[in-house]
Amino acid sequence: MRNIPRLVAMGTLALIIVAAVAGWIFLAEDAPRGDEAWGGVDVNVIQKYAADAGRVARTPIINTDQGDLLLFVFTISGAVGGFVVSYCWRKLIGEKDTVKSDCPLRQGEREQP
C-alpha cells in the first residue's frame, strides 16, 4: 500500500510517454516544413505564423549570421561552454574524494578515502 503513490506517478508518466510517442508519429506527416531539410522550428513554425500575421524577423543587432562567421561563433561558444561545464563538473564531482560529506540524506553512506 505504501507504494501506491509511486505506482500512480510512474503509471501516469508511462501513459504520457506512450501518448507522446503516438502523437509524434501521428502528427509527423502534417508537421510544417520549410524549404530546407531539417529546418528549425523557429523558421518552420514561429516565422511562418509571424509572416502570416504580417510580422517579419529583423536582422539581429550584431549580425553574426553571415557566411561562416556564425559557425565560428558557435564553435567558440560551444568550446568555451564545454570547458566551463567540464571544469566545474570536475570541481564538483571529480574531486569529490577530497570533500567531506555533510549531506543530511546520506551522511556516512559515501566512501571516504
Partner: peptide, 10 residues
Amino acid sequence: AYAMHIAEGI
C-alpha cells in the same frame, strides 16, 4: 542557425 527562440522583430 536553428533555434526555438522568438527572433528579433517578431
